Simulated assay, not measured.
Amino acid sequence: MSTDDFLSRFGSPGASRPDPVAAAQQAMRNPLPARFYKEAGVLERDGLFHVALDGRTARTPARRPLAVGSRAVAEALAAEWQAQAGQIDPAAMPLTRLVNSALDGVADQEAAVRAEILRYAGSDALCYRAGEPEALVARQNAVWQPVLDAVESLIGARFLLAEGVVFAEQPAGTLAAFARKLDAIPAPVALAGAHNVMTLTGSAILMLALANRLIGPGEAWDAAHLDEDYQIEVWGQDEEAAERRAIRRREFDAAALLLAQG
Rank of each mutant, 00 (worst) to 15 (best):
Gln87Ser: 13
Gly69Gln: 07
Thr60Pro: 01
Val73Asp: 05
Ala135Gly: 10
Ala138Lys: 09
Val113Gln: 00
Pro33His: 01
Asn100Met: 02
Ala23Phe: 03
Ala157Phe: 11
Ser101Thr: 01
Val51Pro: 03
Leu154His: 08
Gln25Asp: 10
Arg29Lys: 11
Pro18His: 02
Ala72Asn: 10
Leu98His: 01
Gln82Ser: 14
Ala135Pro: 03
Leu160Cys: 15
Glu39Asn: 14
Glu116Cys: 11
Ser153Thr: 15
Leu77Glu: 03
Asp19Cys: 06
Ala135Cys: 13
Leu53His: 00
Arg63Asn: 11
Val21Cys: 03
Pro133Lys: 05
Ala79Ile: 12
Ala27Ile: 07
Leu53Lys: 02
Ala72Trp: 08
Ala150Asp: 09
Ile88Met: 14
Leu48Val: 08
Ala85Thr: 15
Pro18Trp: 01
Glu110Ser: 05
Arg29Asp: 08
Arg71Asn: 15
Ser123Cys: 13
Trp144Leu: 08
Gly156Met: 12
Glu75Asp: 14
Ala112Tyr: 09
Thr96Trp: 01
Ala67Phe: 06
Ser12Asn: 13
Arg45Cys: 13
Tyr120Gln: 11
Ala115Ser: 11
Glu75Pro: 09
Val42Lys: 04
Val51Glu: 00
Val99Gln: 05
Gly55Cys: 00
Pro33Cys: 05
Val113Arg: 03
Tyr37Cys: 12
Glu39Cys: 09
Asp104Val: 05
Glu110Thr: 11
Arg64Met: 11
Trp144Met: 13
Cys127Met: 10
Glu39Asp: 11
Phe159Ser: 10
Leu43Arg: 13
Ala34Thr: 10
Leu160Ser: 15
Ala92Pro: 15
Phe36Asp: 00
Ser12Glu: 12
Met28Trp: 15
Ala112Asp: 09
Arg114Phe: 02
